[in-house]
Design a protein around this nucleic acid. Structure first.
Lengths: 170, 170
DNA sequence: TGAGATAGACAACTCAGTTGACCATATGGA
DNA sequence: TCCATATGGTCAACTGAGTTGTCTATCTCA
């Protein structure tokens, strides 16, 4: 009980409220940096965070520039540029929709699928290592608390537009 | 004990590793969005996340373009542009250093101090509300876990360079 | 006192987004 | 059936925030 009071005083301490967002973003940054370190090792040195969000959205059903734009919350022109880019780099293919001459349908290539699979694998490894480091229960507590704060752990692909895409590879 | 095994299975579940970074960034986003909603209400509708990081660095001792560049991990040219901007918007003043003719010393105006104070206040309010929502102990647990992951809760102002600066006001 | 280091600014570029204008194709109601 | 309108996509021009390269002015120290 005493403990609880101590906690209470600590978390509401004046002038420390700015630390929580810093901790959150530092954790995010650590994980994404580590992800891309591993993707580079596994044959995807050109992958950037924004690529993963776009491929994920496509894999989840975004089948055209307009649909991708909606999924990523960017303009259709920006989505078109992203598709052009990812196409040139071999992650997806575009073809004219036989049922609608305006549309260019998007499908992942096998390299596109491979990148998604490698990402999923690396994310799981990192997650496991985080659990080893801070403890399974602590990690489960973090995830539960953040879900309580931000709602369902749905992948919000539109976040990438807000974030800016992470580190750039020049 | 059984409980612990259940947690362990859950947190290492295959294919769910991507959720942790999504939760972290969603939490960050929520807090920063809320911060700027409140700052806008309190007379700082033009404030952007990058402004706060820069003013914080200046307040913490960065007294020139070169020093700000080091604090934010950007080029001195970029830091110079930021200072120019913040100066035009009334948050800081620059003067030639009497002791070194090359230097232009930077000091916060009272409006600059006011923005920092309003930010600190809003951060503390939001922190208190998060604690009310998910519980003091859960929040303390989140912060402890993230500190264990990312090190000391020092303000890493250089993060803003990596992040891209958050939402833009057009 | 002169060589090199340092602070700052200007110019030109990049990257990833934006808006606006436009074309080609679909679609649905008179 | 045809035409008005909606939709998917692209091109062009712009923006914002960073980058590198170059330059000047000033400082410091051997």
């Amino acid at each position: 009980m005493d403990n609880q009071v101590v906690y209470s005083v600590r978390v509401t301490e004046s002038g420390r409220g700015h630390e929580l967002p810093v901790l959150l973003v530092a954790g995010y940054r650590m994980i994404i940096d580590e992800l891309h370190r591993r993707l580079a090792e596994r044959g995807f040195p050109d992958a950037r965070p924004a690529d993963g969000y776009a491929l994920q959205a496509i894999s989840a059903g975004a089948g055209s520039a307009v649909e991708l734009a909606a999924a990523l919350a960017v303009s259709k022109q920006a989505a078109g540029k992203t598709l052009e880019q990812l196409g040139q780099r071999g992650y997806l293919k575009r073809a004219i929709d036989p049922a609608d001459g305006r549309r260019r349908t998007v499908t992942l290539t096998s390299r596109g699928h491979d990148l998604l699979a490698a990402s999923a694998e690396a994310f799981d490894e990192i997650h496991r290592e985080v659990a080893d480091r801070i403890g399974d229960r602590a990690l489960a507590g973090v995830e539960r608390a953040l879900r309580g704060l931000t709602g369902d752990p749905v992948i919000r692909t539109d976040t990438i537009g807000w974030l800016g895409g992470g580190p750039r590879i020049h």
